[in-house]
């Protein structure tokens, strides 16, 4: 085999190796779009689920509990208003 033939074969081998690596890399990343699509679908489903109002007994009871907790804050804030309106400063002399 002549020297030029060896060079051609070497170049072809290198090219094949590069092609092989590229193909492997492409095939490895190929599922990504599928995964993204799947994820997007999942997100959409999640969003759709969150917009569906849960009006189960448990949810209603949970909301009532939240209202009670919030009412406690209202009472506390109201007490602070009363306290501040009746405030007296410490005598200085």
């Amino acid at each position: 085999m002549s020297s030029s033939s060896k060079k051609i074969v070497t170049v072809v081998v290198i090219a094949l190796v590069i092609l092989g690596i590229w193909w492997y890399a492409s095939s490895s990343s190929a599922p990504a779009p599928v995964s993204t699509a799947s994820s997007a679908q999942s997100t959409d489903a999640s969003a759709a689920t969150s917009t569906v109002q849960d009006s189960s007994d448990a949810s209603l009871q949970s909301d009532l509990t939240s209202v009670d907790a919030s009412m406690q804050t209202v009472s506390s804030d109201s007490a602070n208003v009363d306290s501040s309106l009746n405030d007296k400063q410490v005598p200085q002399q």
Binding site: M71, T73, V81
Partner: peptide, 12 residues
């Protein structure tokens, strides 16, 4: 304190 009360009333 009134502003805080308004906040808690609106939250409730």
């Amino acid at each position: 304190n009134l502003l805080a009360s308004v906040d808690s009333v609106n939250a409730t």
